[in-house]
């Protein structure tokens, strides 16, 4: 029972693999059905039905899409940089999937005397004492988010097509611009929580003390910036079909093309999960249901919100987009940081 491998009990490894697999599969399924949900939701908002044919009300549509993509011909443009062309979708996809590692998606549960935290990168010993937790979880997520840019720039550059390059560059410029604002917006949260550990931030929001209420401005900015960072409408200029014929992924086909899509949806899930964790109290909720349920519910709500926005807002123009990021959000976040400082120092005491 207490055999140690590399100084850790076997049970740790079992729990770890289990958590990883569950989370991964969950994200994968969510991604698959998010595509379906999006088409359905937007369809209904626009008073049409959306996919109906494959399965009951089109429920098997994602699977059909997947199978179709698998069978598509894989085209590698003759002038492309082959290696970079191949690597780019992976670079976009992998960070999107591994951000989940530090997000606490539920309260601790106890299985066979072991306290298992519902957070992949965390471990409690037998006495229920926390042994470790990635105490810079936010930094990890930001790091992974910024890795996504590489995939897109690489894709745009490797394709050796004008549309791709321009799309890739635009996308990169947009992503880093909003990443900046998003990164600055959440500083006020850390000022209140005094930690970069997501676990601690969630714990701080117990009992409905959500940071969304304490930091509404930060919440709004962060969420909007996040949308921009993952290239969701109304900020989906990089792939702007009408002007750039899908931007950076113009030259992609088959599964490689699918990967960009998967990355986008996975990123959406991540962003919603992070927003939930930072602003909406994480897994906290009325005690009659388990924490992970509340967490998933909040995340799904935010995903729904994203789709709703997509259905209702037109696309921004590029200059408007950059102006919004640099001239509105950036100063606002800094002002918010100082305002929070003053609030904490003078008023809340």
């Amino acid at each position: 029972m207490d055999t140690l491998i590399l100084g850790l009990p076997v049970a740790y490894y079992i729990a770890m693999v289990a958590k990883v697999l569950v989370a991964f599969v969950f994200v994968l399924l969510t991604v698959a059905y998010a595509t379906y949900a999006e088409r359905k939701i937007i369809g209904h908002m626009q008073v049409r039905l959306g996919p109906m044919r494959t399965g009951w009300h089109g429920l098997l549509q994602p699977i059909a899409d997947g199978v179709k993509l698998f069978f598509k011909e894989e085209i590698v443009p003759s002038q492309a940089s082959k290696f970079a062309f191949l690597v780019a979708p992976l670079v976009a996809l992998i960070p999107a999937f591994i951000s989940f590692a530090v997000i606490p998606f539920g309260d601790n549960i106890t299985i066979g005397g072991y306290t298992v935290p519902l957070q992949i990168a965390a471990y409690y010993d037998q006495a229920g004492k926390q042994v470790f937790d990635v105490n810079v979880g936010v930094l990890y997520i930001l790091a992974m988010a910024s890795l996504g840019v590489y995939g897109i720039v690489l894709a745009g550059w490797a394709s050796n097509s004008k549309y791709s390059l321009l799309g890739g560059l635009r996308s990169a410029a947009q992503m880093i611009s909003y990443e900046l604002a998003a990164g600055l917006a959440i500083i006020s949260v850390f000022m209140l929580s005094e930690s970069l550990s997501l676990h601690k931030i969630v714990a701080d929001q117990a009992g409905g003390a959500w940071y969304a209420f304490k930091q509404p401005l930060a919440f709004v900015i962060f969420f909007i910036c996040s949308l921009a960072e993952i290239n969701r409408t109304p900020f989906d200029l990089p792939e702007a079909e009408t002007e750039l014929v899908s931007g950076f992924c113009t030259e992609y086909s088959s599964m490689k093309y699918a990967m960009f899509f998967m990355a986008e949806y996975a990123n959406m899930i991540t962003v919603c999960a992070v927003t939930t964790t930072l602003f909406l109290g994480g897994w906290h909720g009325p005690a009659f249901l388990p924490g992970w349920f509340w967490f998933i519910a909040k995340v799904y709500f935010l995903i729904f919100l994203c789709m709703w926005i997509r259905a209702t807002y037109p696309r921004y123009r590029y200059d408007q987009l950059m102006r919004l990021g640099w001239k509105v959000f950036l100063p606002l976040t800094l002002v918010n940081v100082m305002a929070t400082g003053f609030w904490v120092m003078f008023i809340s005491k």
Partner: peptide, 19 residues
């Protein structure tokens, strides 16, 4: 210490394999 990042490594490996 390394243990905290082991799950992340596992996740990376799985994601890579999947991709």
């Amino acid at each position: 210490m390394l243990g905290a990042y082991l799950p992340i490594l596992v996740l990376v490996v799985i994601a890579c394999l999947f991709g």
